[in-house]
């Protein structure tokens, strides 16, 4: 089996990507993914949506922290989800005088956060809201990034923080800052250590793949709901394959 995977691993990867692509297109086309339909409740997103409304009413800001993972590395997936959430927050808060602020620990990510905000305000014909300093590089190492993001939480009248991206254990310092400033903290990461820390310290943690459902839950469009459905199907497929593999190993005596 391992020899087969070594020989055809690349082709299998391509087939998996094509399968994912096919499923997303199928679910978008068949319209089985009406926004909000068939989505289980995730308390973190419910509370965050409520907090966005309250932030607009009370004239406070939202803070989206995108982590310190590079966009050209494996953690890019979680950072892309963070950018989608930034877009949704900017749209929701566009009637407010205080646009959301994004912090990141990677220069490319900081530029992308500025581009995301600029694109969103352009779509809404609200270019006056765009401020380049709303997408900030707060530091270049994990701890300097955290140290740079903490003052944003304390000093900029933040009502809710969403931590969506690649973090390490130091994310606890951000959640603690949120706790002390009395703002809500919703947090998810691709890193297992950060997930454990967020479970203990964030008011609303996002565990495992819940972070990647952010776009679908915040109404980012049918393609997000379709890709979430694709993830659900593939997860069951993988579970079935793992069980079959375990049973096969059990009955054939390993190897």
């Amino acid at each position: 089996m391992s020899a087969l995977l070594d020989a055809y691993g690349n082709i299998l990867g391509l087939l998996l990507a094509l399968l994912c692509l096919g499923l997303i297109i199928l679910f978008v086309a068949t319209g089985r993914n009406k926004p909000g339909r068939n989505l289980r409740e995730i308390p973190a997103f419910q509370r965050f949506r409520r907090e966005v409304g309250l932030a607009v009413e009370s004239g406070k800001r939202l803070h989206i922290s995108l982590g310190h993972g590079g966009i050209n590395e494996i953690p890019a997936g979680s950072a892309l989800v963070g950018l989608t959430m930034l877009d949704r927050c900017a749209r929701a808060a566009s009637i407010s005088d205080r646009p959301p602020v994004a912090t990141s620990g990677d220069p490319l990510l900081a530029i992308l956060s500025q581009d995301t905000l600029r694109g969103t305000y352009h779509d809404l014909n609200a270019e006056r809201l765009y401020d380049p300093s709303s997408g900030r590089l707060s530091g270049l190492t994990p701890l300097s990034f955290t140290a740079g993001a903490i003052p944003v939480i304390h000093d900029e009248q933040i009502s809710a923080n969403i931590l969506a991206g690649h973090f390490g254990g130091e994310v606890a310092l951000l959640t603690e800052a949120g706790e002390r400033s009395g703002s809500l903290t919703v947090g998810g990461s691709d890193n297992i250590t950060a997930q454990a820390v967020l479970y203990a310290s964030a008011q609303e943690p996002l565990i495992g793949e819940e972070l990647y459902a952010g776009g679908a839950y915040l109404g980012a469009g049918s393609i997000h709901a379709a890709s979430l459905r694709m993830q659900d199907i593939l997860r069951w497929l993988l579970i079935a394959l793992i069980l079959i593999g375990a049973l096969f190993k059990l009955f054939t005596g390993g190897g």
Binding site: A17, I74, T84, D115, T116, D190, G208, S227, M230, Q231
Partner: peptide
């Protein structure tokens, strides 16, 4: 779960649906 989410996020960018 994270790997599947990463694949989905990457495919959305490749399809031009997410444009950061």
């Amino acid at each position: 779960g994270v790997a599947l989410g990463t694949i989905a996020a990457g495919l959305r960018v490749l399809m031009g649906a997410d444009r950061p």
